[in-house]
């Protein structure tokens, strides 16, 4: 792109821009077509099988409990993951950003970043080895622990990002007013970062709720069979999809619709908190001039 060409031939430059726009739009369409197709199929095939009966009745698949208990199992596993993972995640994020200049802080940061890329099935295998072999049959606990290992670094990363976005002047001002470090963090820094942390946690929740692989090797791995109490929605979808019979296929799509809806609701909630925070921010802005 030499300078004279830029001046004398604007037509070609605009043409090039148009070509790039067309290319980029094509990329968007190439991605959106199959993805949209997937969502439409899930909705179209899933809605047929979804009714109150669907949750109350057992399934046709031998050895499996009904979708109602799968839903309860999912809630329990995700609940265990939340109880274990959220305090550890928020705590680690707080420690790394606020007090993490030492060795532990640096190690914890690297561990969080690397853990976020850990294949989830590996967490499941380790949970199986550590929990199932020592306590015997507590399959839901092992599944919850595996999910907590996946949830904690994600929560920690959003907490770090949120706290880093809080301007340093706030901390310095709090310190200058004589507040201790605990009070500064709890009363000044966390309130400013809270919406961001909640948003990230909701999105992380969405990912954990659909997580299948670690549950496949923990919840389903009791005695090599499919135990009744240890059913969850994602593993149910997998079990129904991989056993070939038409009616089970329909139930798998219904289960997928439940999962996709849950993820959508969580994302929408995260988005609404995020945008409400955007509206709150100007009010905050005159208290904290640089925002937060």
């Amino acid at each position: 792109m030499s300078r004279p060409a830029m001046i004398t031939r604007p037509g070609r430059r605009l043409l090039r821009e148009r070509a790039v726009i067309i290319l980029c739009t094509t990329a968007l369409l190439v991605a959106c077509l199959p993805l949209g197709w997937l969502l439409i199929e899930v909705f179209r095939l899933g809605i047929r099988h979804l009714s109150l009966d669907f949750f109350a009745a057992g399934t046709a698949l031998p050895g499996l409990s009904g979708w109602g208990s799968a839903l309860a199992g999912s809630a329990m596993v995700v609940g265990i993951a939340a109880v274990l993972g959220i305090p550890v995640g928020v705590g680690t994020g707080l420690y790394v950003t606020e007090f993490g200049s030492g060795l532990l802080g640096r190690v914890a940061r690297v561990v969080c970043e690397a853990l976020a890329g850990l294949p989830s099935i590996v967490a499941g295998m380790a949970a199986y080895g550590l929990i199932m072999t020592t306590t015997g049959r507590f399959s839901l606990l092992a599944g919850g622990a595996a999910l907590a290992v996946i949830l904690a670094p994600m929560v920690a990363m959003t907490t770090m990002a949120a706290l880093q976005a809080v301007p340093r002047e706030l901390r310095e001002a709090a310190s200058a007013l004589g507040l201790g470090e605990a009070t500064t963090v709890l009363r000044i820094v966390l309130p400013a970062a809270w919406p961001h942390v909640v948003t990230g946690t909701l999105i992380a929740f969405g990912r954990v709720a659909g997580e299948t692989a670690p549950l496949l090797v923990t919840v389903l791995a009791v005695g090599g069979g499919l135990p009744r109490p240890g059913a969850t929605v994602p593993t149910h979808v997998y079990a129904h999809a991989t056993t070939s019979a038409p009616s089970w296929e329909g139930e798998a799509w219904a289960g997928a619709l439940i999962l996709v809806t849950a993820v959508f609701v969580l994302h929408a909630a995260a988005m609404s908190i995020w945008s409400r925070r955007g509206r709150v921010l100007p009010v905050r802005a005159d208290r904290f001039p640089t925002g937060g």
Binding site: Y95, A108, L130, P153, E181
Partner: peptide, 23 residues
Amino acid sequence: LRCLTGALAGALVLAVALIAGEL
């Protein structure tokens, strides 16, 4: 607060060490 969050961060690091050790 520093002690509490430090303990939680330590727990996470310990969990990863346990996973690696178990594997």
